[in-house]
């Protein structure tokens, strides 16, 4: 019997030096669902994502306690951390186009994984750019530098890049802050399709986005999980927690 939960986080505590940015967090992230994480600034949302793909280790002064398992496997015991990161797509809040052409940006991860066949790469690039709603805008200038695209286009380029290695888990960290509403809606539609294939963890500042997309929603405040529940319950008139109620109604603070 397949475990329903793709990612299980148990008693995760993350410290940066003396400040504790995540307090004893335990979460179950279900398979093939969109798991939305909301919460005010500086509440540890990004840290949570970074500890899942272990890029947190690259930051000096951070220490991690607790367990994270993906498909029942403890990630800190995975010897080949690069293999782990290739299974997880990550989109950062600020667009970071690598200083390569548009094509190479998307083909970067598959190439690193050893794919050399031109035809396969072409297919991957086109599919990913289409999924990120960028193909029509850049199909004539795939050879241009990715860093010369506009901010919103670069952000979609990073989404395409995150999809390029066919991740099993896609982490989106406030992906929509640099994109106009129309494009955001198009990408949101894509995300809904994508959850057939992968598990999506969506960190967002936009409460309404979590409401539109999330199957489950988790509210984090000051490094602690306040409430996790289905999105209907979280956004209902009676979520069962006063803080959640205040936050989703915008009267928080």
């Amino acid at each position: 019997m397949v475990n329903e939960n793709r990612v299980e986080i148990r008693n995760l505590t993350v410290r940066y030096g003396k400040t504790i940015s995540l307090h004893d967090v335990s979460l179950d992230i279900p398979r093939n669902k969109i798991f939305a994480i909301i919460g005010p600034a500086n509440s540890g949302k990004t840290t949570l994502l970074k500890s899942i793909n272990r890029t947190l280790e690259l930051e000096s002064g951070s220490s991690v306690q607790g367990n994270i398992t993906i498909d029942g496997r403890e990630i800190h015991e995975i010897w080949n951390v690069y293999e782990l990161r290739r299974r997880i797509g990550m989109v950062f809040p600020l667009p970071v186009g690598l200083p390569l052409s548009v094509y190479d940006n998307v083909a970067y991860a598959p190439r690193m994984a050893g794919e050399r066949r031109r035809k396969v790469l072409d297919e991957i690039v086109e599919r990913c750019l289409r999924q990120a709603a960028l193909w029509d805008e850049v199909k004539d200038r795939l050879k241009n530098l990715g860093t010369m695209l506009s901010g919103g286009q670069q952000q979609r380029l990073t989404i395409a890049r995150a999809l390029s290695h066919s991740p099993e888990i896609l982490c989106l960290d406030e992906f929509s802050i640099a994109i106009d509403p129309v494009t955001t809606m198009r990408i949101e539609d894509v995300l809904v399709q994508l959850k057939e294939e992968m598990t999506i963890i969506l960190v967002t500042n936009l409460v309404q986005q979590a409401r539109r997309l999330g199957d489950m929603t988790c509210f984090i405040n000051k490094g602690r999980v306040v409430q996790v529940d289905t999105t209907e319950v979280m956004f209902s008139d009676n979520p069962g927690n006063q803080l959640t109620y205040d936050y989703v109604r915008g009267v928080f603070g």
Binding site: E83, R86, F92, L98, P99, Y108, A109, M112, T158, A162
Partner: peptide
């Protein structure tokens, strides 16, 4: 070279050397 480049490459599963060779040196 902006830290973001390195972070992005690492998140894509690039090894240290791949990051240096494909991202940092061109930049």
């Amino acid at each position: 070279v902006p830290d973001g480049y390195i972070e992005a490459a690492e998140a894509l599963g690039a090894t240290r050397w791949q990051t240096v060779y494909r991202v940092i040196l061109p930049a």
